[in-house]
Design a protein around this nucleic acid. Structure first.
Lengths: 195, 195
DNA sequence: GTCATTTCTTACCAATTGACAAGTTGCTTC
DNA sequence: GAAGCAACTTGTCAATTGGTAAGAAATGAC
């Protein structure tokens, strides 16, 4: 297993990470390489979530509303750590599916193993916290745009920050992610492109 | 300083917390008692956020949109840990104000001191993580209702889960928290109460 | 107490969004 | 190629929400 990309990712996340041989080895040991084909699930509803450092690919998280319709809760681009927080950290069955929109590559571990590294490699704890904080902050941002931006503004923002998504995800999924119907998104797109 | 309520809160959060004299003392040492009068700020925009274990009271977090209008991002009831995550954990100036809606009581600490406890009292790290995860999960839930619930459903949900808020917060602030205008909330309330 | 200010409600109209249905396009399967 | 299916767009109408203004109610200053 070539662990260099994994360690690079960790170093990029926390510049303070020290590379003593011991810790480096222990850290790498706890991860396994994982590849997902398009359409494969990283997390399934009802099952526990793992912890996936994704270096290539795109993922979509979704759940179902009372009417049984899919609600897309998140899109994950590459170079993000992907996990369903309640399931992973609270040991609950996941309430979300996370599915590969493209072929995905990265490094995978479980809660038990991650805790093992936290215990054995103190510097690594900072990584765990930084990741949790980063994802939390991203979610706060998302909530904020839901409360104070119009559908069109949210669409424009998504195009700016995550244009690739439109290449891989279906518009109906982008619509539910933006909190509107696919019909509405279609209209928004027409008006937006006429500007 | 009577640290019993503080330690009870920690124990309630993580039942595994061991009460060895040493760690107990060190933990308590890092907190100071804090009381806020109604209208006082816990966090101010531009300043760093602290970490407040609030045992009594209600707080409101808010920011401003491009038009300079207040947007309420969160209401904190008692028995929650209150902090602005990006500011506290990433050392950034806060982009939110957090203000007391009522008299508030609890225990306060800074990032440096909290890290000190994490270092000195390993069991306490679990508390820090549990708190972070809990707040993250709460925010995810909030985002989900913004995407797949109507304003009236969100209103009904807030009444059910947080009825007290209506006693302490202004309706215009509740409106922006729900992502609607105060005019709209007024209508929703009329229609809701006529059912 | 009065006055002034803010908060909340209501009314009116405009803009946005949703629900439903029909039509187009593209893809898969046979 | 034809048939079937899913994704996307468009149109129509209804429901929801926003913007503005006016008035009622509550609050605070004096």
């Amino acid at each position: 297993m070539n662990t260099e990309p994994l360690l690079n990712f960790i170093k990029a996340t926390i510049p303070h990470f020290k590379l003593d041989e011991q810790g480096l080895l222990k850290t790498a040991e706890c991860f396994e390489e994982l590849e997902l084909e398009k359409g494969e699930f990283l997390v399934k509803i009802g099952k526990p979530s793992g912890y996936f450092i994704m270096l290539e690919g795109y993922l979509r998280a979704y759940t179902f509303n009372e009417e049984g319709e899919e609600i897309t809760t998140y899109f994950f681009p590459a170079n993000r750590v992907v996990f369903e927080v309640a399931s992973f950290f609270q040991g609950l069955p996941s309430e979300e599916n996370i599915i590969a929109l493209t072929k995905c590559k990265g490094f995978y571990t479980s809660f038990g193993k991650l805790n093992g590294i936290f215990h054995a490699v103190p510097e690594f704890r900072e990584f765990g916290r930084a990741v949790l904080v980063k994802e939390f902050v991203a979610y706060k941002q998302r909530t904020l745009s839901m409360i104070n931006k119009t559908a069109e503004e949210r669409y424009a923002q998504l195009i700016q920050t995550n244009r690739d998504i439109f290449q891989y995800a279906q518009l109906k999924h982008i619509a539910s992610y933006l909190g509107i119907t696919d019909t509405s998104l279609s209209r928004v797109r027409r008006e937006f492109s006429s500007k």
